[in-house]
């Protein structure tokens, strides 16, 4: 579903190499967890997949579509929620979702069903007609997540999606991620919570200083690194 080949990205005229010759493949139907310490290059990689940043070198394909040359088609099959929910504060929740549904060309009947479903699930139904400005951080996170999923994309790309969510919403999102993949779709997400990655992910990739230092199922990683838990593997590989 995602194929990343030798991508690199530098900041400050090449002084800081955020992602260094990274390659990885995410298969259709799997939940892929992307782990790494702060500043390892997780968000930079994610932003390059969704087209917010341009790689200095290398290529990325999503669903067989080159994100550089077939950007619009590639974007249509992705839903992305950033780690920081910066959204139009002067729109109401409903207006924001209508706008996103408009640009993803979601028919009225479907958008109504999905909005009802997600707003109810996240407990936002009553707040939806209010300006986003009045929302808490968690509510903004939920409205961004709803916007990312409103067009029912095959691939979800979520940057630390659990941050700011209450336990009930986090639980429901995890259930939703599992269900999405069981239906043959794909989820790529970054997290700092080891337990979530351990329980939820089919495969895990660990990035450190811009390089992919490990990739595989939890069992494969444990075997390879001779460790008992993901936490130990993480600490060892990112020292």
């Amino acid at each position: 579903m995602i194929e990343i080949s030798n991508i690199s990205k530098s900041y400050s005229k090449g002084e800081i190499k955020a992602v260094d010759n990274l390659s990885l493949k995410v298969n259709r139907g799997e939940i892929f967890g992307f782990l790494g310490p702060n500043g390892a290059g997780k968000t930079t990689t994610i932003k390059m997949i969704v087209g917010l940043l341009n790689p200095d070198q290398g290529s990325i394909t999503v669903n067989g579509l080159d994100i550089r040359h077939q950007m619009l088609q590639a974007k249509k099959c992705m839903g992305y929620a950033p780690d920081n929910p910066d959204v139009y504060e002067k729109l109401t929740g409903i207006e924001y979702l209508n706008f996103i549904a408009d640009v993803y060309d979601v028919p009225l009947k479907e958008r109504r069903e999905r909005m009802e479903y997600f707003l109810d699930m996240f407990g936002l139904t009553d707040a939806a007609p209010d300006l986003i400005k009045s929302y808490s951080h968690g509510m903004k996170q939920k409205i961004v997540l709803t916007g990312a999923l409103i067009h029912n994309p095959e691939l979800w790309i979520l940057d630390e999606p659990m941050v700011g969510l209450d336990p009930k919403s986090a639980f429901q999102l995890k259930e939703l991620m599992r269900k999405h993949c069981d239906n043959g779709n794909t989820v790529f997400f970054s997290t700092h919570i080891m337990e979530v990655a351990e329980k939820l992910c089919d495969r895990i990739g660990i990035i450190n200083k811009g390089k992919l230092v490990a990739i595989g199922t939890l069992d494969e990683l444990k075997k390879k690194e001779h460790a008992e838990s993901l936490e130990n593997i993480f600490l060892e590989l990112t020292e």
Partner: peptide, 29 residues
């Protein structure tokens, strides 16, 4: 008070084109 279903449904709308959707966003903001 919780909003009635009818009132809520009236809020779901669809723009006829993406250009129109962008225009509406710019106008409101």
């Amino acid at each position: 008070k919780a909003m009635s279903r009818e009132k809520r449904e009236a809020l779901y709308s669809q723009s006829s084109s993406t250009v129109r959707a962008i225009f509406k966003r710019e106008w409101k903001l």
